[in-house]
Design a binder for these strands. Sequence first.
DNA 1: TGCCGTTATTGAATTGGTGTCAATAGACTG
DNA 2: CAGTCTATTGACACCAATTCAATAACGGCA
Lengths: 198, 198
Amino acid sequence: MTATTRVRLSPEERRSQLLDLGVRLLATRSLDELSIDVLAEEAGISRGLLYHYFGNKHAFHEAVVRRAADDLIAQTAPPAQGEPLERLLTSVTAYVDYVVTNYEGYLSLVKGAAGGNDTLREIYDEARSALTDRVFREDAQGTIITDTPTARLVVRGWAAMTEELVITWRADPSGVSREELLEIIAASLPALVGVIPG
Amino acid sequence: MTATTRVRLSPEERRSQLLDLGVRLLATRSLDELSIDVLAEEAGISRGLLYHYFGNKHAFHEAVVRRAADDLIAQTAPPAQGEPLERLLTSVTAYVDYVVTNYEGYLSLVKGAAGGNDTLREIYDEARSALTDRVFREDAQGTIITDTPTARLVVRGWAAMTEELVITWRADPSGVSREELLEIIAASLPALVGVIPG
DNA sequence: TGCCGTTATTGAATTGGTGTCAATAGACTG
DNA sequence: CAGTCTATTGACACCAATTCAATAACGGCA
């Protein structure tokens, strides 16, 4: 068919192109439907080239997930200035909007990472931390929360809850406004922290 | 090797044997590592027989997940009697203990279902509902919570948080006792409900 | 402008697991 | 104890993952 002459790119360009395409395709299919065949076809290259760059399918999937996670992290960076609670709200808002906009792709990312191997889960965990730890890293005064094992556990739980809320809401927003959702998420953290025994 | 003569069982027996084995093997490997080859080998039957009973791998996986979910539901059934809050605590306790005991298998179930197709996710959702809806189904008076779209959303978020808490805690319980964990989970629901706007 | 070397890229062959199906052989029945 | 039903098998077709020796763009140099 497309008997075009082969195009030769620099390794960085090619690698980047393939990763971008991989992330983009996650909006249409799940991670494990993202086969070497499909990717090569869409990219207009041979399957062999993918192996040249990524070694095997798992490694390719890892690289794609990492790229997607980096996108997320970059777009939800909390502001450098402001009150802890205010920064929290800003960051959460960015997260909600990101998920709303990139819904299908985000779903593939989450499901793929959760169902995948340990490496995938680690990458995903890092992205989650970006949403939580960063906001409190500079909250050394403990305005919101003091750093204990229990507090860490609760914050982690809060992050899981937040993800579930946003995904569920985005799938069916009926009856709940974006502002209500944001309010619930932001107010939840102090409420949960208040529940810590001791 | 095992050149045993073939054994002929009734369809119900065989089916049940294969599902039990499938659930048991989830403690050792993930859902998609549970290949037809592995199962047939472990069961001492031919691959063809698995296809005879389940049609294809997906259907087999669904059946295994459903069986595992049924186990969970059965073992976390809330008591018929008692105050709503008390019943909640009992049910949550059963859930925590179930996860602690069947950790590896539960992980495979959760990851497999989350990463899988819609059918798998539905089965998994039902199991989650067993932990939440059942407790409140008879709470028609609204002692704990009134039934609104927002409340449903929050309860769903609470369930996701609970799962994350238990799994994370079980992986590394240092610094947090089982009783503290239970207290956090049980107290979280009223705390979260209190955060609902309006 | 045209040759040359480097290396990005290909495609054919191999491997491994999924799914199909006609043939085989337990167990029950008369 | 032969006959029937059907649980069970094993060989084969198929598709996706993976390997690797051969190929051909592109930049540099004459």
